[in-house]
């Protein structure tokens, strides 16, 4: 049943993508859109493949990935740590809760100029922005997961002789894992988006910078390449996280 259903679904899913590319090609071929504004898809993908093997372009990807991972890692460490602490300790909760309420809906990009002034135009300000943006979804879903752990799981572990502080690592953390990973997934997508934007606003390298450079010189083909690259990176990273997720959550129902 599923074996037959799956290819149909995949085929169905490919339809809109093929359609988009076809319309794109059609627009160019019919002359409705001048190639200077909308380069043909063949040219864009050709350029992408050509760029992917060049050292300079790989350097740009590496710069973007470095900032992305650094910011994401900080967000995960802080978000999971603070989220669990806030769920476990009422005093920490009383402090963290209102602060999160204020900071979470704050548009973090608006802080970017301040970060530039404080941390300079290098890696620091961009990594901080990525971390600030990815932090809250991770923190909130960790907190949510940790504060809804089934009481009887904790009781079972306590009865088996687990000291209170160990409960946090042996029960609360693993039990909150599905929720934490959902937060990480959102955080990862945000990291992709934010690192790119930060590089677009001010940078001397990275994929965002490649786009801005191409835009300044009206190189339409080169504007598409970094966008497709970040989309591919997002898909790959999301896939990796999905693999990690299904490994870590192999015992959980519906994971």
């Amino acid at each position: 049943m599923t074996a037959r259903l799956l290819p149909t679904n995949v085929a169905l899913g490919l339809v809109p993508i093929v359609l988009v590319i076809a319309v794109w090609q059609g627009l160019v071929s019919s002359g409705l859109a001048p190639a200077a504004l909308l380069p043909p898809p063949g040219a864009v993908f050709g350029r992408l493949l050509q760029q992917l093997v060049t050292w300079t372009f790989q350097q740009e990807i590496a710069a973007t990935l470095f900032r992305l991972f650094a910011g994401f890692a900080i967000a995960v460490a802080l978000g999971v740590g603070v989220g669990i602490a806030a769920a476990a300790n009422p005093a920490i909760n009383a402090i963290v809760r209102p602060i999160v309420r204020v900071l979470a809906p704050l548009p973090k990009v608006a802080l970017y100029p301040a970060l530039l002034l404080l941390l300079g135009f290098g890696h620091g300000s961009k990594i901080t922005l990525v971390a600030a943006d990815a932090l809250f979804p991770i923190l909130l879903s960790t907190y949510y997961g940790a504060s809804t752990v089934e009481q009887k799981l904790i009781w079972s572990a306590m009865a088996a002789g687990t000291p209170r502080y160990e409960i946090l690592f042996k029960v609360v953390l693993p039990a909150a894992m599905p929720s934490i990973l959902t937060g990480c997934r959102i955080g990862l997508v945000i990291s992709c988006i934010v690192v790119f934007l930060a590089e677009m606003i001010t940078s001397t390298d990275g994929l965002g910078h490649v786009l801005v450079t191409a835009a300044r010189t009206f190189q339409a083909v080169d504007m598409f390449v970094p966008l497709i690259t970040i989309s591919l990176l997002g898909l790959i990273l999301n896939g990796l996280l999905g693999t990690l997720r299904s490994y870590l959550l192999r015992g959980f129902p519906e994971a």
Binding site: E150, K152, L153, W155, S156, A157, M158, A159, A160, G161, V171, P174, A175, M177, L248, L249, G251, F252, P253
Partner: peptide
């Protein structure tokens, strides 16, 4: 004063650790 391994609970909800075999 608190839970201890001298008193072992078995709950209606099973309360097994889902991440363990």
């Amino acid at each position: 004063t608190g839970p201890g391994p001298d008193r072992g609970p078995v709950f209606q909800e099973f309360a097994l650790f889902p991440w363990k075999t």
